[in-house]
Structure formats: structure tokens, C-alpha cells
Amino acid sequence: MKLMSILDHVASAPAAAAPRRALFQQLGRAAVAALPLGLGAALPAAAETKDTSLDALTQLLLLERLVSAFYTRALANTSLIPAAQVPDFQRILRHQTQHVALFTQALQDSGAIMPAMPTFDFSGQRNVPGNPVLFPNVLTAYDDFLALAQQLEDLSARLYRSQVFNISYDPKLYKAALSIVAVEAEHSAHVRTLRRNRGVAVKSWPSATDAAIARPAAAQVLATAATGGEDNLAQEQQAGVLVPFASLLSVLRLTFVSDPSVAEAFDEPVSTAVAQAALSLFY
């Protein structure tokens, strides 16, 4: 990412953009997050991730563009989604389109360079015909479509949770993003419910008991980004202090909750780097 160019651009931004200049208040201490070895090499040059407010908005925009494109193409294939569910995905698409507009506006207001629209490829071939197909039939077979939709919605809810505090400098965006977390979670829950109704062992919330979605190794990062670590039981209430669930939720106190259920009660975040690696599978 061309930091100097962005800063130049900001400096010459129109006065109307001033209120959004705060977006860049964190740029000064932006640090390029090192990607895990081996992962970085597989990513496009632009995929470096940093946890600044600008990077947060940019990444969320990418996510929403990607998901919008996915549903747009899915709905374009009129034989893919059963008629009864078409309105569901039209609604989801409408929300995603609204989210795209929100971040587009936020970036424009702050005078940032608008990232180019990627050419999305949902086969996982990344626009190179010779590459292996990682996500077969996702735009032609309903169950395959739903499986990918679930992973993308899970990833969306997670990524918002991870990025939301990076944009908390702007109360309006912060609140919007928090509200969107809830909407993405409702989307995810609905897709999961649709899959469950089709006989897949999956709950409406990520659970250790969910049937895994089989993917080639090269696509595994999507599963990691969508649901990796959802069996986590270690929740910190302060730095280094874990919530004592074992004693809090015990048989003897008549408050027993099984470990998988405790894990379900807390959705987990995703690191921006892992999220980026997953998003990068599609363009």
C-alpha cells in the first residue's frame, strides 16, 4: 500500500473532507503486520494488512464487495436458488450493497484513494484458468452455494468484530459497524438454518458439533478464517484473567452448561491477516 501517496492525497483533499481526516489519525503509528511465513507469498501485493482505521475500512469494503458480487452472481443463475429462498438472498444482497455504499462513502469523505474493484473469481482459481478449482459448483449447485455462503457470512461477522475497534475514533462509523455485526450474524444464522433444514449437521451459531465443510488444503484458510478457534473456552475478562466458566457454570451451582455450549455463546474474532488470506482466494 502506497502510504506516501495516500498521505499526499490527504494533504490535497478538499476542505469538505476535513471531518473525515480523523480517519488517518492512526496512520502515523501504522505498522505493517507481518504475515505468517509462506502465506504472504501466496497473496497479491496489495494484500498486506495493517490494523489502522484506513486499512479497516478498506478491508471491510473489500469484504462487502466480494459478498455482494457473490450473491449478485448467484441470483443471476435463476436455477440455483429455490424460489422460496430467493427473497432471502435478495434481502441479504441488499444489505451488503448498502454496506458497500457506507464504506465507499466513508473512504470518499476522507479523501482516500478508492481501491479498484477486483475481478472476483468464486472458483478459487483467482482468474487463472490453469489454477485448481478450490470451490467447485458454488454458483451452480445449491448446497455448495450455501456452504460457501455460510463461510463468507461467518467470516463477515467475525471480521467486523475484529475491525470495529479500529474505527471507534469515529462514533458514527463505530456504531454503524456494531450494528452491521448483528446484521451479518443474522445472515450467517439464516444461512446455517437453511443448511440445517437441508439435513446438514450445523447449528445457527458456530459450534464444535458442526459438520466440517470439506475443502482442498489450499482453501483451508477460508475455514480457519470463518470458524477456526470457535471451540475456544478461554475468555479473558481482564488481561491474563480468564472467566472461570468451570466454576461459574457448574452442576453443583445448578448452572451447568457444557463446554461446547459455552464456546457457542461467544463468537470469536479473526485476525485481519487470516481474513485477508481468505478473501484473497477470490480475486
Partner: peptide, 21 residues
């Protein structure tokens, strides 16, 4: 204490999942 906010945020999306289901 940011941990409390993170914890509540992790619960927030599950609340939304509940609502949806």
C-alpha cells in the same frame, strides 16, 4: 478494560444469531 467490551461484542453477534433463528 478492553476485555469486557470484546467479551460483550462476542456475545452481541450470538444475540443476533438467536434473533435470526
Amino acid at each position: 478494560n478492553p476485555y469486557q467490551r470484546v467479551l460483550l461484542l462476542k456475545a452481541a453477534s450470538v444475540q443476533a444469531r438467536h434473533a435470526a433463528v
